[in-house]
Design a protein around this nucleic acid. Structure first.
Length: 967
RNA sequence: GAACCUGUAACUCAGUGGUUAGAGUGCGCGUCUGAUAAGCGCGAAGCCGAUAGUUCGAAUCUAUCCAGGUUCACCA
């Protein structure tokens, strides 16, 4: 190299771009968001004509609190679907929604009241509801901003809210369809009840404290179904709630437990048992129970099997008792129940279906709901019809023990219905608010009968809600992943009737009236009148559901139709799942941008929604539309920390979207979603995010290379594929393959597959092969070189494919890249479609040929690596290897391509001569040997290839190609 | 407790009865210095959660166990 060698660098076509290597996403993303808002990208897409609508119906998040990672995952997945379907040619609409009613918000407002020393019960219900509404509104605004920041597109200006007046009107209207079609009925069900506040409580309102309870062992006499010695025996139960004994309706056992028949042989002086008494216990607990009963000696006579127990009928301990007027003279069946254990008690569970959840479930399963008792009132007092105990309370108005328990125990003693008693301190539910203990108490509730025959003209799939739901699952819906089908199917198959009512304030009321002095079983119990319903709906449209609570509303809607004094207005509110289950009506059906047939193409939520929104939407729609409101159900798993553990504040392993957006940018959060298998539980944490950011940088640099080498390229330089070198046509072939992969992947919601294919392509095919090989041509060839123009044409094609293929995922970065090439006020990658790929790009024979080329190349690069390690060469251009090829066919292939260019060497000799012993061989590349030679000649100061002719041309220190290029 | 799901390199994932289990990332080493807070090459790294079966043969099928997750609520 001489001092007078010209500086040739300036004569090269080196990459030129302002596109920065480092993204600065957290700072720049908001600018693009503002730009899309200004252009009105979402609305502009709606103006495109002649497109088939595609509707992903948004499952509404609850308007309460900042977004967590699960929200981000969910909305980003939805965004992938909406954007990819749009760019594949559909009109993909997306109306975000929010669930606004419900206990958690009610609770927050109550909490504010408590801080101010106010009491919810002193506030007019409408005022309370207004505060809930304001609270929800506030969070809708916050969450909307947080979702938008993640790059999620949609009709954010006009989302749907379950508390909008129209929504409330439709929810009531949908409810009244159940009223009119006969599936609505009043029943009862045990709930946690606070006698102090006289209200039902949710689990969230319960805290557990130690509580000292009575314990009693109560024998139930066998009256029938027994063989031999069992006939004279008594089955002993144990309970900590003596007050529920008057409401006993069954005794439960578990066939998996070992039971025995025991005879008392001797007792202490003071004992409620006598020698000769026969009792049945679980073997594991017999000794304990007999000891407590002051039995000093006993004998185990024999096993008692589950079958024997199941056949027994018992009598209530108060059966035949004087003064009860036969109140307890009913049969007490033995029932089997999985909830029965032999950890504590006797192995038999006293079952009062009105005062225990397990007990109730057992009765529901057996269809015994008519056997429910109604013995205990709002203040935990026995109702007037209960002999001996009427008026006695379990807990008084301050939450202290009332007289009920002791009265029941005293009566049991009197009736000989107790063999032992004691006290136990155990964890017991208390009201969060009053700290007073609660009871399970059955309360009137409204149900939708899901097995009732419907005569509504929508019987294509069956004439019951359950039947239609089950057939919808199998015949009308695709499940992604498939396991979702089984999950929902078995739930629907087994579920009891839908409890629609909640004794709450913030929700849509059950808009119905009951006739005074009638029973729920009477035909005229419920007022069913279309005109009344229409008035209610109209009033809700105008004023919202609050109007239900205004004075005189009953009189107003019943005016001229029924006498208001004859009817009671129901003030329960609907289960919020009924609200969200009705979104298909007030969104898909009623909105101009809803679905043409009122059925969504996709519902997408977490797997927990099998019991939630998928479930309630299905039941609701089967009752009102006769079928499922969706065609595809996509579910995603939960997001765990890096070790696969649940995120929790106490573990300090939580990651919130805001944090990712601040540190890395929303595109990184989105890329994390794309690279994860969302159908299972995913993990996230610092290391994983760092990995995602690394992948992002790699991809970004590939795009930067494309941009840099397209500088100055214009369409006049474009080359037709037929005229391109094989290497370029091979890239087109790969693009055709990827186009297929990408379209099928997006249609199957397989974003991981799409991203992995594209990312692999960028690193393996482009960065380390095509780009590396073509750098020479791109940098050094003259402007009119066919090879260079071909490469640029391919880069241009790559640009259009990669930006649009990735635009649904990396919404910000692809826009940045797009604008780098196509600046302009209204320009946006999100306004264009994914380009069609000509069928003739696919060229399998060519691909097979180039697979051989690349395979052979590996042997050469590996051979060079040996010399590099030995410090013989640095750059591969210093080499001119001799490649011995055994197979003539392979030799022909390699000879037909510029193999030295492919291997990035200055020269390369191909020969069919046998490989000499010293030749380098790679075990996995059979039949190729490489003999290393250094390239001969001088280094061209322009292209750095070492060629014999360098220095013989007009331009000093150049090779022939460069000399020509310099002109 | 019950039902269901998941478990393959440090990380994200392929691989569903058939040679020594793959890819990308990361890591280590080398190299280039005209993609440069980049690019290229090479390399190390896995008892395929554990155990026991079925089979000529198991990451793959079966059972049990372990770990983690989801669901069983007037919570959304």
């Amino acid at each position: 190299m001489c001092a007078d060698t010209p500086e040739y660098k300036d004569t090269l076509n080196l990459p030129e771009t302002d596109f920065p290597m480092r993204a600065g996403l957290p700072k720049r993303e908001p600018e693009w968001l503002a730009r899309w808002e200004r252009i009105g990208v979402y609305d502009k897409l709606r103006e495109k004509e002649g497109r088939v609508p595609f509707v992903l119906h948004d499952g509404p998040p609850y308007a309460n609190g900042h977004l967590h990672i699960g929200h981000a995952l969910n909305k980003v997945l939805k965004d992938f679907i909406v954007r990819s379907q749009q760019m594949l040619g559909k009109d993909a609409r997306y109306i975000p929604g929010w669930d606004c009613h419900g206990l958690p918000i009610e609770w927050k407002i109550e909490e504010q009241y408590r801080k101010k020393g106010k009491n919810k019960d002193d506030v007019p219900v409408i005022d309370f509801r207004q505060e809930c509404r304001k609270f929800a509104e506030g969070w809708v605004d916050i969450q909307r901003d947080e979702f938008k920041r993640l790059g999620v597109t949609g009709n954010w200006a006009d989302p749907y809210l379950t508390m909008a007046y129209h929504a409330e009107a439709v929810i009531a209207d949908e409810f009244m369809k159940f009223l009119m079609n006969g599936t609505l009925y009043q029943g009862s069900k045990p709930v946690m009840w606070s006698p102090v506040e006289k209200t039902a409580l949710a689990e969230a309102e319960i805290e557990y404290h130690d509580h000292k309870s009575h314990t009693i062992w109560v024998p139930f006499r066998v009256v029938s179904g027994a063989e031999g010695d069992l006939a004279g025996a008594r089955v002993v139960i144990w309970t900590t709630t003596p007050w529920t004994i008057p409401s006993n309706k069954a005794v439960a056992y578990n066939p998996k437990i070992a039971y025995g028949l025991y005879r008392v042989e001797a007792t202490e002086e003071e004992s409620w048992t006598n020698a000769g008494d026969l009792y049945v216990f679980a073997d594991a607990l017999a000794e304990d129970a007999l000891g407590k009963s002051r039995v000093t000696e006993f004998a185990r006579l024999r096993d008692v099997t589950g079958d024997e127990l199941g056949a027994l009928t018992l009598s209530h301990p108060f059966a035949g008792i004087e003064g009860a007027d036969g109140f307890w003279d009913y049969e007490v069946p033995m029932i089997d129940g999985d909830h029965v254990t032999d950890d504590a008690g006797t192995g038999f569970v006293h079952t009062a279906p009105s005062h225990g959840v397990d007990d109730y479930e057992c009765f529901v399963k057996r269809n015994w709901l008519t056997r429910m008792t109604h013995n205990v009132g709002e203040e935990s007092e026995f109702l007037p019809h209960v002999p001996f105990f009427a008026g006695l309370q379990v807990f008084d108005r301050k939450g202290k023990e009332g007289k009920a328990n002791n009265a029941v125990i005293a009566k049991l003693v009197e009736a000989g219905g107790i063999i032992a008693r004691g006290r136990v301190t155990h964890s017991y539910p208390h009201s969060w608010r009053s700290k007073a203990p609660v009871i399970f108490r059955n309360t009137p509730q409204w149900f939708a009968a899901i097995d009732a025959k419907l005569d509504d003209g929508m019987g294509d799939l069956g004439d019951t809600i359950r039947g239609r739901a089950l057939r919808s699952i199998d015949e009308l819906v695709e499940w992604h992943p498939k396991t979702g089908r089984n999950r929902l199917y078995s739930m629907i198959e087994a579920r009891p009737d839908w409890v629609l009512s909640r004794q709450r304030a913030w929700g849509v009321p059950l808009t119905c009236f009951t006739k005074k002095d009638t029973l729920p079983t009477d035909a005229d119990f419920l007022l069913r009148n279309a005109e009344v319903n229409a008035r209610i709906t109209a009033a809700f449209e105008e004023h919202g559901a609050d109007v239900w609570y205004t004075d005189g509303f009953k009189a107003q809607v019943l005016d001229g139709i029924a006498n208001p004094d004859d009817y009671d207005q129901v003030f329960d509110v609907l289960d919020v799942w009924f609200d969200s289950g009705s979104t298909h009506a007030f969104v898909l059906r009623d909105r101009a941008d809803g679905a043409p047939d009122g059925i969504a193409d996709v519902y997408l939520e977490g797997t927990d929604q099998h019991r939630g929104w998928f479930h309630s939407s299905l039941l609701q729609a089967c009752g009102t539309k006769g079928r499922a409101p969706y065609r595809n159900v996509v579910t995603h798993g939960f997001t765990l920390d890096e070790k696969g553990m649940k995120m929790s504040k106490s573990l300090g392993n939580t990651i919130v979207p805001e944090q990712i957006v601040k540190q890395y940018g929303a595109d990184i959060a989105r890329l994390w979603v794309a690279q994860a298998d969302y159908s299972a539980d995913q993990r996230i944490g610092p290391e994983i995010l760092k990995g995602v950011a690394d992948s992002y940088r790699r991809l970004r640099n590939s795009m930067r290379f494309i941009l840099g080498n397209l500088a100055g390229f214009d369409d006049s330089a474009r080359v037709e594929p037929a005229d391109m070198p094989e290497l370029e046509r091979w890239v087109l072939h790969r693009l055709a393959q990827l186009d297929h992969k990408m379209r099928t992947g997006y249609d199957a919601f397989d974003f991981q597959g799409v991203f992995q294919a594209l990312f692999n392509f960028c690193t393996v095919d482009l960065s380390s092969f095509y780009f590396d090989v073509r750098k020479d041509v791109l940098y050094c060839d003259g402007d009119d070189s066919l090879e260079r123009r071909s490469a640029q044409t391919v880069l241009d094609i790559l640009f259009h494919r990669l930006t649009t293929w990735l635009a649904p995922i990396l919404v910000f970065t692809m826009e940045e890249i797009w604008l780098e090439r196509f600046p302009g006020d209204d320009s946006s990658v999100h306004l264009v479609d994914i380009p069609a790929t000509p069928a003739d790009w696919l060229d399998e024979p060519l691909a097979a040929k180039w697979a051989v080329v690349r395979h052979s190349r590996r042997a050469v690069t590996a051979a060079l690596e040996v010399q590099r390690t030995e410090k013989v060469i640095g750059a591969s251009l210093e080499a001119a290897p001799v490649v011995h090829v055994r197979d003539a066919e392979v030799l022909d292939i390699l000879k037909s391509v510029a193999f030295e260019d492919v291997c990035i060497t200055s020269a390369l000799t191909l020969t069919g001569d046998p490989s000499p012993n010293e030749a380098f061989r790679l075990p996995e590349v059979d039949g190729i040997g490489v003999v290393f030679e250094k390239a001969e000649g001088e280094k061209c100061q322009r292209c750095w290839k070492i060629q014999p002719d360098v220095g013989t041309h007009a331009h000093p220190d150049t090779c022939a190609r460069c000399n020509d290029a310099l002109g």
